[in-house]
């Protein structure tokens, strides 16, 4: 039960706030409800489909495969692989941390692991589709191009500053 509240606290909190607003300013609900419903509708149209794509990827491409392929990668090959696996339709960033640890233990370069995390966070294919849908193709292309460049630079800087020895316990 405690676990349940920890996971889903935002929902009852939102309901309480929403009802209070409705009671205090009933007139405002005329503006608020359509906006809320419109947002939900837009999200419902796209998010379940994207999640299904992620679900399919998860059962067909197990995470162990990602670890196996990335461990040996170094140099350009390593960066490319880091991007390929990072862009795959997978879950949120914190799922990638254990994979990153496994990669480091297998001898992957720190910079590649940082690139992998960056790509995982920012460059997932379904996420890009959502970005195009809601922010427009021009915005998505410009932002993502710069993000790719930034991810590689960040990867090397992280390796330079934090050093390989300090990461492994």
């Amino acid at each position: 039960m405690k676990e349940f509240w920890k996971k889903y606290w935002s929902l009852p909190a939102a309901v309480v706030v929403f009802s209070m607003v409705g009671i205090i300013w009933p007139g405002k609900m005329v503006d608020i409800l359509p906006e809320t419903c419109n947002f939900l509708l837009q999200v419902i149209l796209i998010v379940p489909a994207v999640l299904l794509l992620m679900g399919l990827f998860e059962v067909w491409v197990p995470r162990s495969l990602v670890k196996k392929q990335m461990g040996s990668g170094s140099g350009i090959r390593g960066i490319v692989l880091a991007f390929v696996f990072g862009t795959a339709p997978t879950g949120p960033l914190y799922i990638a941390f254990p994979i990153a640890v496994a990669l480091l233990k297998k001898g992957a370069r720190v910079s590649n692991v940082a690139v992998f995390l960056g790509a995982w966070a920012a460059a997932k294919v379904p996420q890009i589709m959502v970005e195009i849908q809601f922010l427009g193709p021009a915005f998505a292309v410009v932002r993502l191009t710069m993000t790719f460049i930034a991810i590689v630079i960040i990867g090397y800087l992280v390796e330079y500053f934090s050093g390989p020895a300090n990461i492994r316990e």
Binding site: V113, A114, F161, S162, G163, I167, E169
Partner: peptide, 9 residues
């Protein structure tokens, strides 16, 4: 991944 890595990243 360690504190240093996390802070820098």
């Amino acid at each position: 991944l360690g504190l240093r890595f996390t802070l820098w990243r």
